[in-house]
């Protein structure tokens, strides 16, 4: 079996008396969509924060491509090729898609122009368009502010940005939660395309049909620990709901 690109062993994190993560194991493989599901308060967000460098853990080991490492900030995760699309997307509404795509990672002009802070706008625009086209993202305009676009378009831009910079792992925190039918279909299609590029996708969702449709592997969290890690083909929605609520159990693979 291949080495997981990102792996967690025995992660624990307590907030006061609440054990948000309780000895959690987790692994994602390249070129696969791993769904992370669980009821509210199961520890999904905490786990993602820990794995994307947004939160320190009390105990446990995080391994990147088999090597243990300390993730202390999101920039470190970015440098490794790990990106997160948060539920609030974190786009600057007044900036256009290209500016959002490259914010904090601008391509500067070569030579003296770059030294004075001038950016290579043409290259950033070309690359952004390529990135949007590659994902089939329908972006209305590359020069309009993101804030004037629909939720689906903003979601597409946020995902395209994450994928553009991530070459290893992308975390998507409920990317379909606020979307209509067609936009949801676009996002699921986008997830498949990202996976086909060989990137590991972690898909957090409350929607069991979406999870069944798009994921290769499902990890179920319950009360801060992993209730199950299963192959999507071997399960069904009833079992998943049972695992999330604790009504049924299954050996951790």
């Amino acid at each position: 079996m291949t080495t997981p690109v990102l792996e967690a062993r025995g992660l624990s994190r307590a907030f006061g008396h609440v054990r948000a993560l309780d000895d959690v194991d987790f692994e994602v493989y390249p070129g696969e969509v791993t769904a992370l599901i669980g009821d509210n308060g199961a520890g999904k967000s905490t786990l993602v924060k820990a794995l994307s460098g947004n939160l320190a853990v009390d105990t446990g080991v995080i391994k990147f491509e088999g090597n243990p490492l300390q993730l202390t900030n999101p920039m470190q995760a970015s440098a490794l090729g790990i990106e997160t699309v948060h539920q609030d997307l974190a786009l600057a509404p007044h900036l256009d898609p290209v500016q959002n795509m490259y914010l904090g990672r601008e391509v500067m002009k070569k030579g003296i122009g770059g030294a004075f802070g001038f950016m290579n706008v043409a290259e950033m625009r070309t690359e952004s368009r390529r990135a949007f086209d590659e994902l089939g993202a329908t972006v209305r305009s590359l020069t309009s502010p993101v804030g004037s676009m629909s939720g689906g378009q903003r979601q597409a831009i946020a995902i395209a940005r994450a994928v553009h910079w991530a070459n290893k792992v992308v975390f998507l925190d409920e990317p379909t939660a606020a979307l209509g039918v067609r936009q949801t279909k676009n996002v699921l299609e986008t997830i498949r395309r990202v996976r086909d590029k060989g990137i590991a996708v972690v898909f957090i969702s409350h929607s069991m049909p979406h999870v069944m449709e798009v994921s290769d592997r499902i990890q179920v969290l319950r009360l801060g620990h992993r209730a199950a890690a299963i192959d999507t083909k071997t399960t069904n929605m009833e079992e998943l709901v049972g695992l999330m609520t604790g009504a049924s159990t299954r050996g951790v693979a």
Partner: peptide, 11 residues
């Protein structure tokens, strides 16, 4: 535009 968005991408 969004202090939070800027901070998250490392500005």
């Amino acid at each position: 535009s969004s202090e939070e968005a800027a901070r998250r991408v490392g500005v």
